[in-house]
Write a protein that binds this DNA or RNA. Sequence first.
DNA 1: TAAATGCGATAGTGATACTATCGCCCCTCT
DNA 2: AGAGGGGCGATAGTATCACTATCGCATTTA
Lengths: 225, 225
Amino acid sequence: MEKLFQLDVQVRERVFTKDPATTELGRRIVQHGILLIDELGFERFTIGKLASALGTAETSVYRYFPNKHRLLIYLVDWYWAWRELKLVFETANIDDPRERLVRGIRSVTAPAKEKGPYPHVDLRALYRIAVAESAKAWLNKDVDSGDREGHFGSFVRLSHRLRDLIQGVDRKHPYPTALASLVIEGTGSLSFFNEHLPSLMGKGARDQGELFVHLVLSTLNTKRP
Amino acid sequence: MEKLFQLDVQVRERVFTKDPATTELGRRIVQHGILLIDELGFERFTIGKLASALGTAETSVYRYFPNKHRLLIYLVDWYWAWRELKLVFETANIDDPRERLVRGIRSVTAPAKEKGPYPHVDLRALYRIAVAESAKAWLNKDVDSGDREGHFGSFVRLSHRLRDLIQGVDRKHPYPTALASLVIEGTGSLSFFNEHLPSLMGKGARDQGELFVHLVLSTLNTKRP
DNA sequence: TAAATGCGATAGTGATACTATCGCCCCTCT
DNA sequence: AGAGGGGCGATAGTATCACTATCGCATTTA
């Protein structure tokens, strides 16, 4: 299964100038890009610092990504593609729609707890980036053209898969798509609050899986078991 | 009532070097800061452009805010303070807890539709800033010290007020604080998706007030009327 | 062997977030 | 009326950084 994960996660969209997955330097850019952005935060992260960490020149990095922001988009898209794959695996072969949905919500809201099987991707660092930086991928004035070019495709696909799980339980829910997007985006926000603004979280809400399972199930037109 | 609004909204915390509310230049910095950030987005916005728009020098702006990021924090905090005041007004004198909660959710999720009564604050522009930029106020490595200095105090107070309304209906809800924060933060995210990434929203979810009323009420342990 | 590809190195440009400093003007206090 | 101070505008300067242009070397490919 780990091999399958490794083979299948990829950034389909043209967010790069040259596909970093195809060369050793490209993979090292991704690997150390993750570590540096996690360590410094996206604002303090610079291409120059990344080049230094790699022992190369800035120009070499610019061969793969046209700018710093596109590197972030690449990492974030990779992350959502990984979550999509994880969701597909973790809901496979489950026939009961309700059970599928519960597993799906738990999958989508679960933090990454291990470095994972990808040699050049530290999943825990990437998870922290997703929590703290992923909104910056779209919160800017280029969001519309970025959307047109498919920069957020993995996030959209993930959201639609969760929507399908919701509709599998309640075909008449009035807001399945918005609810799915809220769960995925909201779990990141609450993770951040939990870590940095705990007064926004109260007590007993540390397990967001249960929070969102509770939230979604209770809005559905269906009896509880 | 408008006068009261005008008198009462203020940034209590020490996010500024010199209180911009106390001088004419300070108010013009706030006024044109809102307009420019709304127009350019926070990344493309610069202190130099703001100074040009004001017909003054950069150094004059730096007398009020130590850096560009603090100006954003000021505007965002002002915004949440306004929303808090609005929430207090719009739930005043309502005795039925359920009705209070519904009004509170509608208040907190309602977009700003008019420029409003504050001469140096265009509420519609500020609302757009809150949707597109407010997360950047805390999504950075200074969030912990910023929290300690109370930079997010208005947001926290607003969230706690909504939490109190939730608990007024269901005293035993397991996650009242997290749910309140999710509603407030989530309505911004969904507004942004609605505008820029509509495939994340589906159809029929344009009125977020109803979406969140539906969502919150159905999680509460209480009978619907 | 020739060509292409990938990489590293140097140099440079324009923007921009600040900082330091100075002198003017107006208001207030005496 | 004169002195002092606060607020303001203006100039100058620094360090960082995103990005571009160009070249030459080495390794792989044809």
